[in-house]
Every structure is written in C-alpha cells, then in structure tokens.
Design a protein around this nucleic acid. Structure first.
Lengths: 162, 162
DNA sequence: CACTTTTATACTGCCGTATGCATAAAATAG
DNA sequence: CTATTTTATGCATACGGCAGTATAAAAGTG
C-alpha cells in the first residue's frame, strides 16, 4: 500500500462517513488492513487539504476542501513532475513548449494547473507536448527560465538560437 | 539534468549522428554540459534498447531498436508506475479496471503496453481510468491479482464483493 | 592467440522520500 | 484557567533509485 493509495482511501472515507479525528482514521484504515500512524495520517490530511468544520449536527467533522488548496506541497509536486518528465523546455515568444515522454504530458500539465504558477494564463496538453501560455506581463522568457530550473536544466546546457 | 532528460538527448544524438561507442557519447554529452560516465551511459543504452550494427559504410554504429525492446527494466518500470499511480485495481469478469489520479492514466497504460504482460489483449486509458482486457485463457482474476501485487496492495486489503 | 578496446557489473556512497516515535504545540472541554 | 484531547513536528531510520569507481567480462583486431 503506497502513499497515494492510502490518501485516496482517506478521501473516500472522509466523503462517506463522519470522521472527527485523525485517530479515528487510523483505526478505520487499520480495520481494512492499511497500517499507518497518527503522524502519517495527519500529514496526509494536510496534503489533501482537509479542514475541520462543525456540521449540521454540531459535530466537528474532517472534510476535504472542495476548491483546490495550495498547500506548500503543490509547487514541490510540480518541481518533481518537471524533473521527472520534462525532456525539453523551449520558448517561442510568450509560449513555452514542454516535451515529455509519450503519454506523460497530462501529468505535468495537471501539476502546472494546480500550482497556480505566477504569470501563467493557462496550458494545454497533448500526448507528449504541453503548451504553456505566459501572460504578457510576465513574458515567456521568464516563465521558461523558471520551468527550466524546475526541470533541473542547468543554464549551461540551454540551447541557443533554436 | 535528470536521467530521463539525459536519455532523451542520447536518443536524439544516436538518431542524428554516427556514434560507435559509449565513450563517444560521454564526450558529446560533456560538450553540451551534461556530465555522465561511461558506466551511466552504458546503463542508459541498455535501458533504451540500443544495438550495435554495421552500417552501409561498414562502420559499427550504435542504433536504437525501432521495435520496442523488452529489457528487464521495462517490467520494473511498470511496477514502479503501478505503485505510484494506481489507486484501485478492480475486476469484472475478464476486465480489470485501474483508477489513477486525474491525468495519470496514460502514463500507466503506456507502461502496461510496453511491458507486454502475459495474457493481456490490450488496454485503453481515459483521464483517470484504465481498462485492461485479459485474454480468455488467462482470465481477469489472475491478471488483477498480478496487477494488484504490482501496485503494492497486500492480499489482506483486497475488497470483497464490491 | 595475444592485445586492445569496449561494455557490463559489483560495490559503495549519496540523496530524497516516507514513516514511526517521541514530544511539543494547539485546540477543545469543563 | 486547567486538564484533556488532538494535531503538528523534530529527529532518526529505512528504503529505493541513481551514479561513480574500479574491475571483470566480452568483443574486436591483427
């Protein structure tokens, strides 16, 4: 059972039952054979963006934020995806083109979307290509530079004039 | 510069010039600011499925196999993708349904395709869902079991009767 | 066959992630 | 306000992947 799987199960549990504490979650997971401690579950809840609200019955209940939360882990996640999947990052005026291995473009694009990187109007992804549109104010060059840094490209091997 | 990026550049180099030895590749990479040793490049070449052929000029040349090669690393890669991205693996007769986080289905499906897992007729992927069709001979149950194992699900937390 | 070149690998160290334990900090209850 | 419950976190550890060094194995050469 990996972290993603555990977090997915936690999401399901929070959406289907009233759970008040991390300790309860630990017990529920344990009951279905998933072992994790309170510390781990608490960290999961943070990453998932959970909040504790008082529901209609006046009971405190853990819920997941419906609107995407920009936890500190999100930009970290983007950095990791860029490092792992971005093969090239190239620039044409205000457009940055990122190439990935086949089928991997969406993963990176999702991470980009969620990260709410500054000065990005939006991005679209094909199978192995992502088009990122920089805002006029930001400009493509600055954005490309940031994305290249995330991907772990040193400035020395920047392609010139392509 | 990460491993994927380096391997991508190696692919480009092999396709665009005549290269005979790993040592040559090391030098070419070095020239563009990518440092790697012969050992690393050799490992890359193995993973990429390179072969050394004698070309029309009678020169021995490193080339990439056009047909997908089943290097030992391929099934390892599948295992890693399943562990990282597969959230659930469920079964309905000879069909196995794998759920992933949004946008991640293709990555896993590609890995599945490349792995040439036994008894798989084929698979298709949406945004967060993969449908894998088991051959009649193999049967969905056996396939699901193998995929679940890859994803790191212990047999204990197998869902019953859902 | 002897020698050189090239490739493959055993071993080791490094780095980042994930997690448990212990405990501090914060929230809640009375 | 104090005590209790709950959450957050500093630290240590385990594990996995990656890559370098040194060296063995294999391939090529004459």
């Amino acid at each position: 059972m990996t972290k993603n799987q555990r977090q997915h199960r936690i999401t399901e549990l929070l959406n289907s039952s009233v759970i008040s504490t991390a300790a309860q979650l630990v017990a529920l997971l344990q009951a279905e054979g998933i072992s994790a401690t309170q510390a781990t579950v608490t960290r999961d809840l943070q990453e998932l963006g959970s909040v504790k609200i008082r529901n209609d019955d006046g009971v405190r209940q853990l819920t997941l934020a419906t609107s995407p939360v920009h936890s500190p882990g999100v930009s970290e996640h983007l950095r990791r995806m860029m490092g792992e999947w971005a093969l090239t990052v190239e620039l044409s005026s205000n457009i940055v083109v990122i190439r990935t291995p086949p089928g991997c473009a969406h993963v990176v694009a999702s991470a980009l979307d969620r990260s709410a990187l500054g000065g990005v109007l939006g991005c679209v992804a094909g199978d192995d290509t992502i088009i990122v549109i920089a805002s006029f104010e930001r400009g493509g060059a600055s954005l490309a530079k940031e994305l290249r840094a995330m991907a772990g490209f040193s400035s020395s091997n920047k392609k010139k004039g392509m």
